[in-house]
Design a protein around this nucleic acid. Structure first.
Ligand SMILES: [Mn+2]
Ligand SMILES: [Mn+2]
Ligand SMILES: [Zn+2]
Ligand SMILES: [Zn+2]
Lengths: 146, 146
DNA sequence: TTGACAATTGAAAATGAATATCATAAACTA
DNA sequence: TAGTTTATGATATTCATTTTCAATTGTCAA
């Protein structure tokens, strides 16, 4: 079963229809799997392939994709939602955000075992997901420091 | 030197004036040091003491307090800014947010040594601050699970 | 203590991301 | 293909936050 078929099935499962718009939006996100695009950035890219699309459709579709577990919503504190393709391992990649140039670097590996264990024990809190961001200076920006 | 004097000095240092509005806003935040209030919640509390204050002043002041390191801006993904008093240790308390009741629990202690070390080494990234949130179910919500 | 001047304020308008509304259009299904 | 349902695009709306600007207030030197 190919990618599109899987996608179609995921939609059909919940009574959603496969539309050109949804397909194009998925394409754009897939072609930019390394990026962390905002809704409007996605809108702009989608319009290159499908100029008639409406902005509301993009917003609606991103919401839908999040529900379906196709996409993961990110918050980089820049006042807009950002999205990345959901890969199973999502619960263990962190984002490093450069305070100077805004670069976003991914850190694979969870490495939160200590902390999560301490939380579950001392706070009796069942962790479902986490959101870990580091702010600082990337290597480029460090070299041309002051 | 008392609290107000310190505050006055912090302002004067950068050419800011000590106004009644700023003093009242600081009071409200201080009296709620255990909470994580949003801008509008702060506005409502401030109005009880100083009804003539304008909403814009509250927003402006919270921004200013953040610049001055008096207050720390939080993002709990609920579409509004929240603030807490800055205490030196800020770089090491995490927030646990209950997905059911919205409770916010604080987890003292950093416990990110492993992770931060790995980042600084493998990514050559200098960490200035981090933002760590855990989403899950608090003990109350766990007991009346389903 | 006063006055000059810069900083601050409140009210109101403006912004910007996201959502809601609704008539029309496309997808699915029998 | 017809009939039903879901989806779409254009537009209006919401809501938090920011901007604007005339009027007020705090500071500090004289
Ligand atoms: Mn990522
Ligand atoms: Mn806190
Ligand atoms: Zn950088
Ligand atoms: Zn709870």
């Amino acid at each position: 079963m190919n990618e599109i078929e899987k996608f179609k099935e995921k939609l059909k499962d919940k009574g959603y229809k496969l539309t050109t718009q949804r397909r194009v939006i998925l394409d754009v996100i897939t072609e930019n799997r390394d990026k962390h695009l905002s809704s409007e950035e996605i809108y702009d890219l989608v319009r290159l392939k499908y100029p008639e699309i409406g902005l509301a459709t993009v917003y609606r579709t991103l919401q839908l994709f999040e529900e379906l577990g196709i996409v993961y919503k990110l918050n980089f504190d820049d006042g807009r939602n950002r999205y990345e393709l959901y890969h199973n391992e999502n619960h263990q990649h962190h984002h490093l955000i450069c305070l100077k140039c805004g670069a976003v670097i991914e850190m694979e590996g969870d490495l939160l075992e200590n902390l999560e264990e301490a939380i579950e024990e001392t706070k009796d809190f069942e962790i479902i997901d986490h959101n870990v961001k580091f702010f600082g200076y990337c290597s480029k920006c460090r070299s041309r420091y002051n």
